[in-house]
Design a protein around this nucleic acid. Sequence first.
DNA 1: CGATAATTAGAACGAACGTTCGATTTAATT
DNA 2: AATTAAATCGAACGTTCGTTCTAATTATCG
Lengths: 202, 202
Amino acid sequence: MPEIITKTAPNRRNRQYEKRLDSILKAASKVMAEVGFEGASVRKVAAEAKIGLSGIYYYFKSKDEMLFALQESTFSRLADTLKDRLKKAESSKEKLKAVIDNHFHFFSEHMDDLKVCSYEIESLSGEYYKEVLKIRRRYFDLVKEVVAENIPTGSLIDPDLSALFLFGSLNWIFMWYDPKRNADINSLSKQLLKIYLEGIAT
Amino acid sequence: MPEIITKTAPNRRNRQYEKRLDSILKAASKVMAEVGFEGASVRKVAAEAKIGLSGIYYYFKSKDEMLFALQESTFSRLADTLKDRLKKAESSKEKLKAVIDNHFHFFSEHMDDLKVCSYEIESLSGEYYKEVLKIRRRYFDLVKEVVAENIPTGSLIDPDLSALFLFGSLNWIFMWYDPKRNADINSLSKQLLKIYLEGIAT
DNA sequence: CGATAATTAGAACGAACGTTCGATTTAATT
DNA sequence: AATTAAATCGAACGTTCGTTCTAATTATCG
């Protein structure tokens, strides 16, 4: 039963600590996005981060904690940028556009991070798992509310289901998106918004 | 560079061979769905299949081949049931309903198989990877055609993108579906069809 | 039953795994 | 420059990994 307390650096004299930690997380997300959490050995992550194997354990007490830190950091950033965008949106439709835009843009800028977050929840267990679930839940509720606003009153459409289907379209992008081949993100975003609001048959 | 030739059983006198092979594939999909391909050790699969560790290698020459066989078998069945349903459909809309129904029903009956197929493509490499890609491509094209039929002429909607978004909604179900909590499959299917055709805002 | 082939089991291989530890190097403070 | 703490390193630990043997078992056929 791991404790989840953000390691508070004790008055560090060397200011490189945070940067090093970030660079390890970046390496971790790159390796894990490529070969999955189980396949991402601590040795590979260490090599990618240009640090010794044991050096990793100066920053994380276990491989699990590393994944947890990565997920927490990523989801926090994703939710923060969404909240910012939502503030600026003035209609329900604009809010929905903000959700889709934010997700796709965040994806295009942090593919590895988001991929790991999307596919490696079940690799966590115990307290780590529960905590990440809570963070995800908050993000989901945020989106669900926006979705609900776009469903006319009296409609038979279920907001929960709709939001889940939307998440599917948003996250499945990992399976096919190729920066070289595919259209720009804004075009993707526009198309999904149109389909999700009006359907393909209109 | 592995050869991909379906092992032709040489006039077996013991008819248990096929059943044993199926039981191993079933065990493999169960374990892999739970802990992923990397996490699914051959020992765990063997234990689940109630066979000795080395017994596995009588049926498969490597762990990779096991995953390949599982994916090939699953996708073949999925595509076959879809083709059957499409034959019976009489309108474009009914065809689309067939696609969604088929996918969700296949999911509910073979969750483990489909989960592994959805998330473990990249675990394959070389010839195995290429071959599975071809099979997936065929299935995708099948669906894309149905999607395209449902897009009015002159519409700005891109069939490829639409199909990909649909696949997202269909496959993301792994992330949230709980047989105990969620509504029945038919209800899910209906909702997605409605949303996908008409949007949430109508 | 005896022969033959199909199937399983057990032990072993080197390699890679996550983690720990003590020693060493680097940087900041006096 | 000396001291102290932060940061890194290399070696080693016990396990587990995928795979390969050879021997034993089982089922089928003459």
